[in-house]
Amino acid sequence: MTSGRAETYPLRRREVVARLVADRGELLVVGGLGAPSWDLTAAGDHPLTFPLWGAMGGAAMIGLGLALARPTRRVLVVTGDGEMLMGLGALATIAVQAPANLAVVVLDNERYGETGMQATHTAGPTNLGAVAAGAGFPVVGDIFDQAQLEAALPRIRAEPGPVFFNIKVRAEDLPLVLPPKDGVHLKDRFRAALLGPAAIE
């Protein structure tokens, strides 16, 4: 296990994610594989959350397809720094499409948590917020503490985007809280909840 500054970051991912989806209303949520999806499940499994168990590098693009299909609904992607790093090009693709209703939030623990807490590029010189800004996201922010999180929450939930926030969270191993694993079930429950039961007949 790598040690470094991330062990001392004040924000705790479970609490951050609970705040991100609190009183979620009409929010549609995509969770990046592994820990971000477990965090979302700990905050409350929901049919309008699509938690990934794979497809590493694809979370933000799933959010884009959904945001373009349902322009009147807010779409929130919650993913990890490792997952985002595998699909950095998605940030450019999203910026070109410029969906106002999409927010991408990275829980940046500077680690590949699922695979043994190895350091990611963000433990070194890489700054995902700067990448998103360079890709062309009009709204970008870095969050290190509770006050910044509180200020960002309404922007994540409502500001015309696309919105990107990188949240530095403590590198910590947490108990697994697993969502359903069957991909067809996850897809069908999402479509039924969003589009009505006829969508899965």
Partner: peptide
């Protein structure tokens, strides 16, 4: 990216 995009599109109908 397109495979993930179209998965999201389908989730959204």
């Amino acid at each position: 990216e397109g495979i993930a995009l179209l998965a999201g599109a389908w989730l959204g109908g």
